[in-house]
Amino acid sequence: MRAFVYDRPDAVDEAVASVAADPQAAFLAGGTTQLDLMKDGVWTPDRLVDISRLPLRGILVESQQLKVGALTTMEQLAAEPVVAQRLTFVREALLAGATVQLRNMATIGGNLLQRTRCRYFRDPTVAACNRRSPDSGCAAVDGVARMHAVLGVDERCIALHASDVAVPLLAVEASVLVSGPSGQRRIPLSEFWVRADEGPSIENVLGHGDLITEIDVPLLPQGWRSGYLKVRDRASYEFALTSAAVAVQMDGDMIADIRIGLGGVGSVPWRAREAEEMLRGTHVDPVRFEQAGRATMASAFTVPGTAFKVDLAVRTLSRQLITMTEATR
């Protein structure tokens, strides 16, 4: 790990100013991604500004939404009763997302900012990585690529965004509140991440010194059901091969309204809008579920190692749609 200066300011403004003033400075929160990257030598900040004690921890429950402090841990959010009742798929994604040890450390803000697990990205001795160093190529495309993305990618980069909880948060149209050098702004998650095929070296729209302070999560209205299905090789403690976050409002055996997010497939957490549109207002029909999945995956870019993900994602979504619509039939 490269030597760095450690600061722990007391206020958000101070932290933002401190990072903004130094191009080689960065925020440190839960550290679960950052320390790993620093040890790998992929990320070498000269100054770490520890924000983990800033007053950005806690959950405010309002009638229509949760205001989640960015430093709230995954474990704290999963333990919130309203999340279990009104955002079941968020809770399930949190619990499936990491071990208890990591959930006790990792913050929600940090989770949204997690870097890809691509081993080529994480090994600085691999020269070809467009994400790490622009225009250097992509070793993963010709390499071992099982845990890589198939949506929002092209031959320049197939890095996966491996977050679980970001998938239902995107589906439920959460937004982040950002404090930066030029003040505060709100960014919907749908506009937060940048797809690899839109520029592999840029991961999100935050600028240097921008700090997520809060995540606003709309509650699903009464009468909605939601759930998160994660498919992986191991029974626990593994990133998703594919996952599906589905929230649905049923009217008899009719899908009145629906939100779908897919994980394990995209360079960014993936909202399946085509599938939502195909299913909204239709009767429960597994054939149509599969068609909706196929439509979502139609734009997939695959390499030999990731080809299976197209079919698996369709099946994962179909299964979760069946599960979510079953009980109301």
């Binding site: 697990r117 090789d233 191991r234 029974a235 626990s236 403690y237």
Partner: peptide, 11 residues
């Protein structure tokens, strides 16, 4: 150990 999987308790 994040990429090479060995059985965990749940398996």
């Amino acid at each position: 150990f994040g990429d090479y999987l060995v059985a965990v308790s749940a398996d």
